[in-house]
């Protein structure tokens, strides 16, 4: 140790202090985020908890606050989510598989890739206009659940594709080589090895996308979701409303009671979201455990 003093200046105390400062900054960021969330939740629960009841979730909307409920909105949201998942999963994962496993590397692929990334940043209202023109009018879906779901699927597709691509890219090439090495075809490699390993990552992308879709309001308004629905939707071609629109509608009214109802609907929306995420996480864990790690 002797004789080294002049050749090194460890400044250990300062280095440790820097480490502590960085840790404190990180801690305060998370503390801030959590605090905001807690304040928001507390505010919503305070306003809405009193309105929550079995009647609230099982009644139709009404002019009289005490009798108003969100049954059609819940069912509408569930229908839309189901269809969004059913549409965006095959298209999104299919596109991702093609881009990662089949498409020749080149300018065209880069162009497509860049455009997908750009589409992820397009404002949702633009998708609403597109959905109105294509699904409602051109395909003649009308102001139906299917039109809303198709529009929201377009909206989340870029995110689903990008997340799935990342997950597929993260599958080690040694695994692909191993499968090719025993005489597997490309489809067999994808089906038996790439997809099962990529599935947890793909599902994470789906969770995020569905969470975004369930909270979207603007594009659904454009494709014609109604604010007042006095019946339960029974199929994809029915008229519909969704929770965010019901919430939006109630918050726009002057009476304080309706603000309480809106808060209660927000609580329900959050619960639906949590249940959806829980399902997706369970699915993801199932695939992860099957993967054996």
């Amino acid at each position: 140790m002797k004789g080294q003093e002049d050749r090194f200046e460890p400044r250990l105390a300062q280095r440790r202090r820097n480490g502590k400062i960085f840790q404190a900054v990180c801690l305060s960021s998370i503390a801030f985020s959590v605090a905001m969330l807690v304040i928001l939740l507390a505010d919503v629960v305070r306003d809405g908890a009193a309105w929550l009841s079995f009647d609230f979730v099982s009644s139709f909307p009404s002019r009289i606050p005490a009798r108003a409920g969100i049954k059609p909105a819940i069912l509408g949201s569930l229908w839309v989510m189901l269809l969004v998942a059913a549409l965006s999963f095959p298209f999104g994962v299919g596109a991702a598989i093609y881009l990662e496993e089949y498409a020749p590397r080149g300018r065209l692929r880069r162009l497509i890739q860049t455009n997908i990334a750009n589409l992820a940043g397009v404002p949702s209202i633009v998708y609403g206009i597109l959905g109105l023109a294509i699904f409602v009018r051109f395909f003649g879906f009308g102001r139906s659940i299917l039109a809303g779901a198709a529009t929201l699927s377009l909206l989340v597709l870029p995110v689903v594709i990008i997340a799935a691509q990342e997950a597929i890219r993260a599958v080690p090439s040694s695994l692909r080589e191993a499968a090719y090495g025993v005489g597997a075809t490309r489809w067999q490699v994808v089906r038996h090895h790439v997809l099962p390993v990529a599935m947890p990552g793909i599902l994470t992308g789906m969770i995020l996308s569905l969470s975004r879709a369930i909270g979207e309001t603007a594009p659904v308004i454009l494709v014609g979701a109604l604010a007042f629905v006095a019946f339960t939707p029974s199929g994809p071609m029915d008229l519909f409303t969704v929770l965010p629109i019901q919430i939006f509608n109630w918050t726009a009214r002057p009476q304080a009671e309706f603000h309480g109802l809106a808060a209660a609907a927000i609580i329900v929306l959050l619960i639906v979201l949590l249940l959806m995420n829980a399902t997706a996480i369970l699915l993801r864990n199932y695939y992860q455990s099957r993967r054996g790690d």
Partner: peptide, 10 residues
């Protein structure tokens, strides 16, 4: 073929 790093399927 047998590869450099053992690569069993998971």
């Amino acid at each position: 073929m047998v590869f450099q790093k053992p690569n069993p399927f998971p």
